[in-house]
Amino acid sequence: MTVTAFGSAQRLCILLLKEDLNQDNRLGASLADQLDEWMCLARDEEDHEAFASVVAETHHLVRSTTLRECADAELSDEIAQETFVRAWSKRHQYRTGTSPRAWLLTIARSQLLDHHRRSNREHRHLRDLIRQELLRRQPPDDDEWTRVRLEALDVCLAEINDSQKELLDLVHTQGLTTDAAAEILDIKAPACRKRLSRLQQALRQCAEKRLQEIL
């Protein structure tokens, strides 16, 4: 499905983990049934817990698909959020036995199309030009490894030091800008972004190494 941070190792995985993939497919089938059941509960009984389960099991797919199709992290999450909100408000339109994942992706793509229609009428900005260049060079679609990648990332996150944890907490958990994080950490703003950039790169490399070790 997604853009991956650890492309080469994952492509190796595709070749070498066929058995696991078969098993994953079997698990995938049961998950699809479970998603269908939860979505029906959400529709028929307005069951928030069931809908929360649908969100939890599909948000990776929806977020990474929208990121891949718009090359804008902020916009992709906005579209993904809008998708789940729409899915809840239109839950009565969900048909039993169809795939919630496909249904959600249809809603997400419709939201993206709406966004593109609106933005095409507006003045095009530099950021859009960058997105256009990126979309011309989309990475391969290998979303089926998201779960493995996130597990590898978990291990790597456990190994970083306290100051690195604080930086990630400020930017990714609390949602501060790197400028605001720099103030709290009492460092200069460019140094803060450099530090974050190096840390994220190190985490990517760590996770990629972990994946190779799994092989």
Partner: peptide, 19 residues
């Protein structure tokens, strides 16, 4: 472009884990 896509994916992964 590959580096930028990687950074986008990294940010998304970290947001998924932390935010």
């Amino acid at each position: 472009a590959a580096i930028t896509w990687s950074a986008l994916a990294s940010s998304l992964d970290l947001k998924m884990k932390l935010s």
